[in-house]
Structures are given as C-alpha cells and as structure tokens.
Nucleic acid binder design. Structure first.
Length: 290
DNA sequence: TCCTAGCCTTTACC
DNA sequence: AGGTAAAGGCTAG
C-alpha cells in the first residue's frame, strides 16, 4: 500500500531519534513491531510512503501525521537554539506507540543507553513474546502484561534487565491483576494520567513523561533525562537562578523537586507542544555529540 | 513534607 | 585493563 503525504514528514529521522526501540532498518525499508502489528515501511520521496502489513489509517496514527507540524514549530520556536534544532530536523514527528509496550520499554530503559535498551527489549520479546512470520522473516511481538506477570524475576534478569527486572515484573502484575486499561489514560488529563503512571513500580517522573509523550498523546509532557538536563543547564541557564543551576551541577541525578521545576519551566516556556520541543532538542544535542 | 546520598545491573565505548 | 556514562528509581535517614 502507499500513502501520498500532504504534510512534512521524515520517516528515517522519526525512527532514528530514540523514541522507538523495535524498528530496524534493512536497506531502505524499516521493519517495525508495535502491539500486535508487524509492518514494513519506506519513504520513496518527501511526499510518498510505501508500506505492507498495516493500513493507511494505522500509519497516519502511528507516525502522528495528523499533528499540525507547521503550527507546532511556530508555537515552540522561542529562541535561536531551538530554532536551529527545528531547522536541522524538519519532518521529525512524535510516534504514537502501543502504551503497554511503551511503559514496559521505559521501565527497562532507566540508566541504559539506546543500544542496550534495544538489546534488552529484543531479548524480552524473543524469550516471552509470540513468534510471528512476516515477509520471510521471524519476529516476536512484545509480550503482554499477562505474559510478563507469569514470568519469574529470574527469567527477566536473563534478558539483561538487572535490577529493573523486579520493577517490570511488579508493574506487569499490577496491570494484569487489576486489568488496567492504559488506553483509557489517553482520556485523562496530563496531570491525572501522570499520577496514575507514577503508581507503577519502576516508574518515576521521567518514565511517566516518556509514556505520556510517546504513547498517550500528551504533547505537553517534557521528559527531562541527562541530555535534556544538560541542554537546559548549558543553554537556558539564564531562565533559572544561578543558585539553582549550581545546585544542578553538584549532583548527577535530579530530585523530584528539581525535575518538576525544570519540567514546569519547559511547559511554560515552550507551551502546549513542549514535548515536541523536547524531542527536537534531545535529538539535536545527541547528534552534535556523535 | 521535601531533600540527599547511596545503591541498584548491564552494556558499550573510551 | 579499568573507568565512565547511559532516555532513573527506590529507600533510609
């Protein structure tokens, strides 16, 4: 199937920038797994997508093609620094992931780099997920909450999870036992959904914001990880008291109070699409380092 | 109530 | 080879 785009979109950029961990490039095709969907997709020109395994409606939703990117760029374009990021990565869109997979993924992601996260999620899927065949290749769906609730902590540790294994297992048990429907969180406010996510073991403010932004459509969510903290300290220091900036420099991890202060600043400064600003800034900072 | 220090595994890259 | 950094969270004090 194919889709003619009448909006700005860069498929490679959107899949490369660390939002999703289970999409792999083979030649000019991307093979993606999300929920119970396995599909391949490529962009043959700036205005043309080809894909197999899903329909145009799914592609439109998954890749955020209905987001008004022009309006979003105007809205968050507050200073020369973000302007440079917006210009360099035009067409980067927020992907709408499966909420359970996203929640589990970011519990696994704490204190890991992206390559390590991808490896861990692959092992979890291979060891506990359903095996599928697509386009002559073998894939594994990400395991359901029920599957992971039934797995032992020891089995999960073997996936490279380390100390995170018990958190993932405990969260899977809660989701399964209480029959939590994460899709319903989409209809809650940002603050209420964040409170609910915060209740899960292994989920702090940062993981909650990632789930809100990458799977629940809360575009005001502004995850503050080590990279974003660096960006704020190095480029937005004038927006905070010198005292506060020095305090941030003294220790590596953020207290919840410091996190909330940075997060609230960004939401006030960048506005309702702060999450888009975060994604552009994050990718900009990482690309400059590599 | 809020903050801090110390701890938690694994992996990749230097 | 040893050290460091990595899309952090939990607990004690």
């Amino acid at each position: 199937m194919s889709l003619k785009l009448n909006v700005e979109f860069d498929l490679n950029l959107s899949l490369c920038c660390g939002q999703v961990f289970r999409c792999k490039r083979q030649g000019d095709w991307w093979y993606c797994i999300s929920g119970d969907k396995i599909f391949k997709i490529r962009q043959t020109s700036s205005k043309y997508l080809e894909f197999e395994g899903v329909d145009a409606g799914f592609v439109t939703g998954f890749f955020g093609l209905n987001d008004d990117l022009e309006e979003i760029e105007r809205s968050v374009n507050k200073d020369p620094y973000i302007a440079a990021a917006l210009k360099q990565f035009r067409g980067l869109r927020l992907i709408r992931q499966d909420p359970w997979e996203c929640l589990a993924s970011f519990i696994c992601a704490t204190y890991k780099n992206i390559v390590a996260i991808e490896q861990t999620l692959f092992k979890i899927s291979q060891n506990h997920g359903e095996k599928r065949f697509f386009d002559g290749q073998t894939f594994w769906l990400f395991p359901s909450a029920e599957k992971l609730a039934m797995a032992s902590v020891h089995d999960l540790e073997k996936c490279g999870l380390g100390y995170r294994a018990k958190y993932l297992q405990a969260t899977a048990k809660r989701v399964y036992n209480e029959q939590v429907d994460l899709e319903r969180f989409k209809h809650l406010s940002y603050v209420d959904a964040k409170k609910r996510l915060f209740e899960f073991p292994g989920v702090g403010l940062k993981v909650a914001d990632c789930v809100l932004l990458f799977s629940l459509g809360k575009m005001e969510a502004f995850p503050v990880d080590v990279w974003v903290k660096r960006i704020l300290v190095n480029n937005y220091a004038k927006c905070f008291s010198q005292d506060f900036v020095e305090k941030l420099g003294r220790h590596k991890s953020l207290s919840n109070g410091e996190y909330e202060k940075l997060c609230l600043f960004a939401q006030n400064y960048f506005g309702v699409y702060a999450g888009y600003a975060q994604e552009y800034l994050y990718h900009y900072e990482r690309s400059r380092k590599c």
